[in-house]
């Protein structure tokens, strides 16, 4: 029983982290809390579904969905944020703009895909169950975990091991200085939004497969989980988002298993509020990182 819960928490945590990485990346680089991030996640899921319905194999549908939602992220920045950034508008304005963009994207999805819950066709992924002593795990869950971890490692390499990553970190540290050093700040920002959107899209397809329920409103509950995750880890903190994703998934899974299933949603908010009140910089945040 316990080990089964651990397994459930691990693969769920991997997807939570995947979703939250893009969320926190944009905040880390630009100081924007992009509340439209969950809408990219939802669009990614729909695009993945469309590809599958058009007869494409899943291994192609996933990267296509990622590219699409990545481009959507770039477009989102050009339309909703760039003007505000150029004007040096307050945080409040950017936040409101992202809310507007998210309403727009949700309504557009409602129009294009209808408000109904859509599902992947049966058998799109082979149903295979492994039993290891007391623990059962499906091939789908293993694949989701493997793909999530692979994407996260790739992201880590990208940010820590490449020139692009170096430039991104420079822009996050100080865009003005970065520009003086000859770093193409605008391009770095576009790449950041592409990465964030692609990560959200990947999470959308994977969770859409896992729960097999895709709707224009699927971003709502995920948004609140994502916020909890990135606040847990410290806004803008990449490692923190991964840690936060697993903390959240473990608390959720364990409270459902040992307390009551009614408490699952409550867990993330109680966590969120406790962290905000006592450690607003997150578990990994330094006190000097106080952005408030």
């Amino acid at each position: 029983m316990f080990w089964q819960q651990v397994v459930n928490a691990i693969w769920l945590g991997a997807v939570y982290s995947l979703f939250s990485l893009g969320y926190t990346l944009v905040f880390g680089v630009l100081g924007i809390l992009n509340l439209a991030h969950p809408s990219l996640y939802m669009w990614g899921a729909f695009i993945g579904l469309m590809c599958v319905n058009a007869g494409l194999p899943l291994w192609l549908a996933l990267p296509l969905a990622m590219i699409f939602s990545g481009l959507m992220g770039v477009l989102l920045d050009r339309i909703a944020f760039k003007t505000l950034r150029d004007r040096n508008a307050p945080h409040l304005a950017t936040l409101i703009s992202s809310i507007g963009a998210s309403i727009f994207l949700i309504s557009a999805a409602q129009g294009v895909f209808s408000a109904q819950v859509s599902r992947f066709p049966f058998g799109v992924f082979p149903v295979k169950v492994f039993t290891l002593g007391p623990v059962t795990i499906t091939l789908l869950q293993i694949s989701i975990l493997a793909i999530s971890l692979a994407i996260m490692l790739f992201l880590r390499w990208l940010l820590m091991g490449t020139k692009l990553g170096q430039a991104t970190r420079a822009v996050a540290f100080n865009p003005v200085t970065a520009a003086r050093l000859g770093i193409p700040v605008d391009r770095v920002i576009m790449q950041t939004f592409f990465l964030a959107g692609a990560l959200a899209g990947a999470a959308g397809v994977l969770l859409g497969l896992a729960f097999n329920a895709i709707s224009p409103f699927m971003g709502g509950p995920m948004n609140l989980k994502g916020l909890t995750v990135i606040v847990l880890g410290g806004l803008g903190n990449i490692e923190g988002a991964v840690l936060g994703g697993f903390i959240l998934s473990f608390s959720e899974v364990m409270s459902v298993a040992y307390l009551s299933s009614d408490l699952r949603d409550a867990v993330s908010f109680v966590l969120l509020l406790i962290i905000l009140l006592f450690r607003p910089n997150g578990l990994l945040g330094r006190s000097s990182a106080k952005r408030a």
Partner: peptide
């Protein structure tokens, strides 16, 4: 700002 928005959302 951002933190207050998140807390009130919660």
């Amino acid at each position: 700002d951002v933190y207050l928005a998140i807390a009130t959302l919660g």
